[in-house]
Amino acid sequence: MRGERKAEGAKRGAVASEAMIHLDHLYRVAVHLAKDPTEAEDLVQETFVRALAAHDQFDPGTNMKAWLTKILHNFFFDHYRQRKRWISTEEIPEPVSDYWEQLPTENPGPENHVLLNELSANITDALKRIPEEFRAPILLIDMGDFSYAEAAEILSCPIGTIRSRLSRGRKLAHQHLAAYVGLKQKGSSTK
C-alpha cells in the first residue's frame, strides 16, 4: 500500500516537473486569451492544478504540451463561459495600449528593448482584435508550433476548420500589421 502511494507520488511529481517545461508556452497562450496579465497568470496556475488533479489521465511519453494546452483552453471556456466568446470584426475593441506595459519581461536587452516591445505590443494588439475563433489557431500553430492535427485535437474541431480559420485569422492580422511589419501587400487587399 505504502509502495503504491510512493509510486503514485513519484508519477505525480514527474508530471508536475515535466509540466513546468511548458510554462512559458502556456503563459503565451494565456496572455492572448485573458483580458489582462493577472488573469493570464491565474489561468496558467489553475491549468497546472487541474492537470495535476488529473495526472493519471496522462500517458507518459505522449504529448504533454498538447494535453496541457487543451486543459488550459477547456478551463478558459468553461470558466469564462458567461463572457461573450466571439466578437464580430465590426465591434473590435480599441487597442489596449498599456497591455504590453503590464506584461513582465525578463531582461529584454538594452537597445532592442524598445523595438522588440513595440513589435510584440503591435502583434499582441492585432491578435486581440481578431475574433477568438480565428485567433486560437494562430496561437497554437504560429506561437505554439503545433501541427494542424494537434491544434484540431486541442480545439475539438476538424483539421479543415483549423486550416480555414488559420488562413482567415492571418488575413485579419495582416490587415492590422501590414504597415508595421513591412509586409508587401496592402492590408486592404486581403480577402
Binding site: L23, D24, L26, Y27, R28, V31, P37, E41, V44, L103, P104, T105, E106, P108, L116, N117, L119, S120, I123, T124, L127, I138, D142, M143, R170, A173, H174, L177, A178, V181, G182, L183, K184, Q185
Partner: peptide
C-alpha cells in the same frame, strides 16, 4: 507576406516568458 507574418508572430511570442512570480 504570410510567411513573414508567421515569422513575426513567432518572434514576438518568443519574447513573452512566464514571469518569475
Amino acid at each position: 507576406d504570410e510567411s513573414a507574418l508567421k515569422q513575426k508572430i513567432r518572434e514576438a511570442a518568443r519574447r513573452i516568458n512566464a514571469p518569475g512570480q
